[in-house]
Design a protein around this nucleic acid. Sequence first.
DNA 1: CTGTTAGCGCCTTCAC
DNA 2: GTGAAGGCGCTAACAG
Lengths: 340, 340
Amino acid sequence: MAATLKDVAARAGVHPSTVSRVLRKQENLKILDTTRKRIFDAVEELNYQPDFTARALRMKKSFTIGLIVPDIGNPFFSRIARTIEQLGFEKDYTVIVCNTDEHQAKENKYVNHLLSRGIDGLIMVPAQDSDESVNKVLEHKVPLVLIDRLFEDINTNAVISNNVESAYNAVKHLVDLGHKKVAFLRGRNNIYTMTKRFEGYQKAVDEFGLVKSDSLIVGNGFSFDDGHNATTKLLNCPEPPTALLLTGNLITVGAISAILEKGLKIPEDISVVAFADSIFSPYLVKPLTTISHPLYEIGSKAFNLLLENIESDEETLPPTQIMINTQFDIRETTGKAKAA
Amino acid sequence: MAATLKDVAARAGVHPSTVSRVLRKQENLKILDTTRKRIFDAVEELNYQPDFTARALRMKKSFTIGLIVPDIGNPFFSRIARTIEQLGFEKDYTVIVCNTDEHQAKENKYVNHLLSRGIDGLIMVPAQDSDESVNKVLEHKVPLVLIDRLFEDINTNAVISNNVESAYNAVKHLVDLGHKKVAFLRGRNNIYTMTKRFEGYQKAVDEFGLVKSDSLIVGNGFSFDDGHNATTKLLNCPEPPTALLLTGNLITVGAISAILEKGLKIPEDISVVAFADSIFSPYLVKPLTTISHPLYEIGSKAFNLLLENIESDEETLPPTQIMINTQFDIRETTGKAKAA
DNA sequence: CTGTTAGCGCCTTCAC
DNA sequence: GTGAAGGCGCTAACAG
């Protein structure tokens, strides 16, 4: 078994509490003479490491934060996670990663679990079927920062993107290229980002007098298959759209695969703009025109906001919402609309 | 503050230990009469959740496993992490994710930290500058499974790939296409996978009488820039290679960008085979010929092996090493060698 | 079947 | 400056 405070104390010939003090107190707040050396020697010899669990129990502070995301396998989330973990490391916080797979039930289970673990704070991308778990966290007065999605009727800390504007600009770009019929491939319905992006899409459709039809709004999931199926369905229409607005990494890959399977050319036959954050985007079949996120910025803003809340003496700070601008890169998957 | 066992006990008019038992013991092993109901009611009313930290301290079991990888932002690792987390969830284990960035110092710090946290097991991709941290984990008798890399002189559990064979086959494929001058872009040196892949490369070079030159062995890092710079250097040679064997996701993106910047065509001017695990691989400039890993399989094999070790009564089980075969997909980045 | 007692390893009063 | 005592919330061993 690992050495304990008591062991160190015995070996150094002092009381455990003394060891505890020496090991933790700032180097010399209350100066100790040679005891100090004896203790450090003992620590060295016994290879003593304080027991984190015991300390957490006693201090009601775990130096642990939770990170709940839909899918850490998705580059968007994994790169944000990377940043958060890295900044946490610098501040001695450790992060527990949880995937909800967009399931509310999993999210609830995780939230309960993390709460009972005594995490110091939580960063999460809510699955958003309900606000149950968010409220639970709030009730427990555990610092919380939402990323990418939020509930408009709950005032929480959040780091989100300018979805409406991003989608609007993307469609406008297509309009400038002569497109009149633009499809919107949404991920799961009722998700904040989707609602907002759809809002931007709609606004542009109305403003520029594009073809408006429910048949152009397709998809209901974030996976490769979701993207593939929705696109296939679209392309099988008698008069398919000439451009696609894709709303996620995996959806994008699925859509591209469906287009290629159909033997269509991008952008000659169909243009594509995607919300995508893969490092591979610029090197696809055709370099992909994307709306991408400054992932490091999102991760670090979220982490710092959380840390502020954790370290604040106030029980709860007034919520802060940070808006991050996406980046729009016009590359080669968007081109002139085919003449009708 | 959250309710405690004592609170529940008081409210139910029983002793805390009784509550503890009722809440934990399998539904009816030793049957309790109406006390049970009183307790459950109290739990309900107080919204009681057991404190995980206290339980961990008492039971010396944290239901937590550590996962140390170089960079969770890299799809190879993030997708493995996803699997491990998911399987952990099913078994009530929670996972702490750590990025080493290939730095031994960070790895050591993390290992110490995780150990002092009392993790039940550890899955790691060692940074491999030294075996210090691996040995430390072993000393502490904490179940350990290595992924992707191992130390040949330390007998540990591990899930690795058939690197030698994979690299050999890739080069052979190039040879079949007429290539005589194949470059090897390695990631960080002294890393198990690199050594092995290089071994396969060398074997093929020797066996098929390819051009053998140190100038064809370039690169020393896993980043985009590493891939970009190494490739640029290669292409600036008076007689550049006609094919490249790339050994990582980011290296691949960097290499492709360098090739395109030079105005060269893939595969007409230069062929490319990559160890790559991005979902985007099939849809690159040219669909990428890849050696890819069954990531779910790697993650689940690793997790199950770890779980076996955690749950075993033996203090240490004999180490198991599992070899996983990569998949070779010939797509369109490899073509006939240019006539000299 | 349920209460009592003890203690996991640590930190924090409060004395001396 | 250092020791002693108590307890964070829980479980385990032993009584009854």
